[in-house]
């Protein structure tokens, strides 16, 4: 009844790609969240629609569109293969791209909600006290949007851990290379390996539980005073 090496590989891959995606997507997530929450500009609703699109599209559709873009004959895929000699499709990197696209709207939404809740009067007050827009962001907007940002991170990260549809389209289901926990569960059920599937389901549930619990702890202790 011991956990198999394939299961461990799937688990580690899921965690690695999700963390990597989070680190890469957090800066643009903060920027886009801030733009959508705090700025008025032309094309704002187009940006909003574009960012949120993967939330409403079936993941398989997003995955298929990515496949078209990144595939050998796609505009980005051809560029990468001709100039850098890199193949993206069916690699762990493709997993990162897939889960990043799918989880980005959730990350941005959390950040946006957090930042919208910071009164612009406080930011203006900080400006009159001599703070540059960048200082205002790091000393006022970001600390006060903390809860929303953490919420977005956890939601996005959990979504990444469990992403299935887009991943299987662009990365395939290659054990040890692109097989994440979700894909491994799918395969186990498909092959009638119920015990293996059950172990992975249990592990995913525990992971989700821990991440939510950690968030709760962080947000409660950090925000006790105000």
């Amino acid at each position: 009844m011991r956990i198999t090496s394939a299961e461990v590989a799937a688990l580690l891959l899921s965690i690695k790609v999700s963390l990597f995606s989070l680190v890469v997507m957090l800066p643009p997530g903060l920027l886009v969240g801030w733009l959508l929450a705090k700025r008025e500009f032309r094309g704002k609703s187009i940006l909003n629609t574009f960012v949120m699109l993967p939330l409403v599209l079936p993941p398989v559709v997003s995955g298929y569109l990515l496949l078209l873009l990144l595939g050998k004959n796609g505009p980005i895929g051809r560029l990468l293969s001709n100039v850098f000699n890199i193949e993206v499709i069916f690699t762990p990197f493709a997993v990162v791209i897939a889960i990043s696209v799918i989880s980005f709207p959730l990350l941005v939404q959390g950040i946006m909600t957090g930042m919208s809740s910071v009164p612009s009067e406080l930011e203006n007050a900080a400006r009159t006290l001599g703070a540059s827009p960048l200082k205002v962001f790091f000393t006022i907007t970001f600390p006060l949007a903390y809860r929303g940002v953490i919420g977005g991170i956890i939601l996005g990260f959990s979504k990444s851990l469990g992403e299935f549809g887009a991943t299987i389209m662009v990365a395939g289901n290659i054990p040890g290379k692109t097989q994440t926990v979700a894909l491994a569960i799918f395969e186990a059920v498909h092959l009638g390996q119920d015990i293996s599937a059950f172990r992975l389901v249990l592990i995913s549930t525990v992971l989700a539980f821990i991440s939510i619990w950690i968030t709760e702890r962080i947000t409660i202790s950090k925000n006790r005073i105000y």
């Binding site: 406080l122 400006r127 009159t128 001599g130 540059s132 006060l144 005073i225």
Partner: peptide, 20 residues
């Protein structure tokens, strides 16, 4: 000139202290 370069003290009706 942006507000942070004007060097004016602004006291608001509601105070607007930074809660954190």
């Amino acid at each position: 000139v942006p507000p942070d370069k004007r060097h004016l003290g602004y006291i608001f009706q509601e105070g607007y202290l930074f809660p954190h």
